[in-house]
Structures are given as C-alpha cells and as structure tokens.
Amino acid sequence: MSDPMAFLLWVKGPMFNWALAIFALGTLARLLEIFLLGRRPNYAEPRGGEWGPGLRTVLTRSVADPGTFQRAPFDVLVGWIWHVGFLIALLLFIPHIELIQALIGLGWPGLPNPVVDAATAVTLVALVATLIHRLRHPVKRHLSTAEDYLIWTVTFLPLITGYLAYHRLIGPYPLALGLHILAAEIFLIVLPFTKLTHIFTAFIARWYNGAIFGRKGVQS
C-alpha cells in the first residue's frame, strides 16, 4: 500500500546519499587522475601566455566558429538548445534550487514554472532529435558506442520523468517523483564513470587547449 511512498523516501533518503557519495568519490578520483598526470616542462620560448588564453578558450569555445556553424548547423543549434534547456530545468526550477540550497547553502532566484516547463519540453524534443541525428548521421553513427546511447538515456530520463511528474502524467505521484529523483541519482552515479565527466573536464580540456595554443600566440 505505502510502497510508492516508501520508494520515494528511499530515493530521497539513503539512495540520495549513496548517489552523492558515489558521485563525489568518482568525480574526485577522475579529476585527480587527470591533474596528477601533469605536463612535461615546456622549454620553448613562449610567444604568449597560458592562463589568459586558456580561460578565454574556456568561454569562447562554447560558441562555434562561423564555418563550423555553416557546416553543422544542426549540431551547433540543437546542441546549444538542449544544453541550455537542461541547465534551465536543472538550475532554475524552484524545487531544484531549494535542493541545491539545502546541499551547499547557495541559492538564487528561479524562473516561473511555465518557462521552465517550456524549456523542458523543448529540451526533450531536442534530445530526441539528437538521438535521431546520432542514428542517421554517418559520422555520428560510426563513432557511437554503447556508452553514447547509455549517456543519452541517462540524460533523457531525469528530464522525461521530471516532466511526467510535474504534469502528473503518471501516478501515484510519489512514484512519479521517486522515479524522477532516481533518474537524477542514476545520472549522478553514472557521471564520473562515463563521458558525462565532460561536464567538468570539458572546461579543463578547453583550458589546456587555450593554454597550448596561447603559448604559441594563437587564441584558440
């Protein structure tokens, strides 16, 4: 009788702590695995700095160069749309902000729900489009491994379950909410062990890219 509620309390309680613990363990291990490898000393006389260009690339690489945009408008546009939509749903939905505030003590204003709702709907459509694109585009199909489809699924699930729970399209509600939280926990658990780590490492990669090029006097 109270199973869905017991499930909800489990995912909100012990499971949530486990997911965060695994996430923290895995992510720190991954980041150290990267940083501790270090770089060999570079004796070549630099033409430019590393830090400035590196940090600039961290930001600028979010925007595609015009040529790439022309050659792959779908990737650039849909990629942007769903990343932004995902971040809106994750970071600007009031209940999520409450959770983050409870976790780390930092809060910020949210967006009105209809806006978050619309962003989520757009993101869902965009994600489905990326999947279709991945299955059809010769390069992506050739590149894709089981992991790519796994992380697509793991990314899609929190959004779709959140959307279903918000609109109360599956019931009972504790089950819907529990599934959403569980999906988010699966995302957290899977993150450090898959290419979802790019959420963190992409910025490290961009910095290295900018630094390597910047040292040679090129803003990458």
């Binding site: 949530f16 923290a24 720190l28 150290l32």
Partner: peptide, 30 residues
C-alpha cells in the same frame, strides 16, 4: 523543509567518499 530537499543529507559520508575518491584516484595515478 521544502519538498525537494532530501530527508537527511549525510554530508559527512559525502565528504568522506570524496576524500576516498581523491586518495584512490591519486594512488592510481601515482
């Protein structure tokens, strides 16, 4: 407490797990 906030947040465990991760990752790289 807001509905979306977990019943109990085990901060100590999360920090401990992070520390274990750091040690494990560091040892593996070493």
């Amino acid at each position: 407490r807001a509905l979306s906030v977990p019943a109990e947040i085990d901060g100590a465990r999360i920090l401990a797990a992070g520390a274990v991760g750091a040690v494990v990752g560091g040892a593996a790289v070493a």
